[in-house]
Amino acid sequence: MVTKDSGAEGAGAVGSDSSRPWQTLSAGFEQARAREDSLDRLVEWPAQRALLGDVTGLAVLDAGCGNGAKIAQLAGEGAAASVGVDISANFVAPPPGVELIQGDLSDLASVAGLAGRPFDRILFLQSFGYAADPVQALRTARDLLTDDGFILLTRTQPIRYAVERSEQNGTSLGEEYFATESFVYRHRNWDEQVTLTKRPYTMSDLLNTFSAAGLWIETTVEPQMSAEAAERYPHKQAVMNAYLGILMFVLRPLSGQPGR
């Protein structure tokens, strides 16, 4: 394992005030993800893994990798180069060949050891919302792709947050879905003592961000629980029924855009 410090600066940079909430929250996130009834285990990771396909011999970068467990798994499944970047540095002890770097996904170009390094797959698995400048973050990732590479990006369905805020504020779904003011959010399943400031977004915001970054959508998936999992964990199916779940995108560079 190699652990490095990035020289990133600005919002969310290593050591900055804005990075500290996530450094505290990351442990709770990993504990919640490890639970048997975690939606990440039941819905998200199986769908993400299916979209990635065979990773044998590929170079994979996980931007916002959490503790690095997923990139370590991909290395065990044949990925030739496996790199994880996360601001928290609360990493697992990975197998040989896995490199975990403390750094800011907002500016991958400034993360030590990444500049000019090509990747076949770049992952933003529920991490993209923390980018200080979403368009620039994707442009930088795009420029790190190989000719046939793609970005796998997942985001919570934006209606989820609108439904939650409408319930909390006694407002309508439309009011909250189209709201533009940032809001304070506490994740009940991770650590209720930690607050994060979130920027609301709509589907059009996501699509326009991809386009502005010079990317097109090859595939979109909205994974659901299997019938067996829904029967075994009805409380989780109730969450999916109320809040819709997650969106997954396979993104590739538009023709004529910079790339390898």
Score class of each variant (00 low, 15 high):
Met1Asp: 12
Gly7Ala: 13
Ala11Leu: 13
Ala13Gln: 00
Val14Glu: 06
Leu25Trp: 05
Gln31Ser: 07
Ala32Glu: 05
Val43Met: 09
Glu44Arg: 11
Gln48Lys: 12
Arg49Ala: 01
Ala50Phe: 02
Gly53Lys: 07
Asp54Tyr: 14
Gly64Glu: 04
Gly64Ile: 06
Cys65Leu: 03
Ala89Lys: 09
Phe91Arg: 04
Leu100Asp: 01
Leu105Asp: 00
Asp107Gly: 09
Asp107Gln: 10
Leu108Asp: 01
Gly116Thr: 11
Arg117Phe: 01
Arg121Glu: 11
Phe124Trp: 06
Leu145Lys: 08
Thr146Gly: 09
Phe150Trp: 11
Ile151Gly: 00
Gln157Lys: 01
Gln157Cys: 09
Ile159Pro: 02
Arg160Asn: 12
Ala162Lys: 02
Arg165Cys: 10
Glu167Arg: 12
Glu167Cys: 02
Asn169Arg: 15
Ser172Gly: 14
Gly174Arg: 04
Ala179Met: 08
Thr180Arg: 14
Tyr201Val: 13
Thr202Gly: 07
Met203Pro: 03
Met203Phe: 14
Met203Trp: 08
Leu206Trp: 02
Leu206Gln: 12
Ile217Asn: 07
Val221Ala: 12
Pro223Arg: 11
Gln224Thr: 14
Gln224Asn: 11
Ala227Phe: 07
Ala238Gly: 14
Val239Gln: 12
Asn241Ser: 12
Gly245Leu: 09
Leu254Lys: 14
Gly259Leu: 15
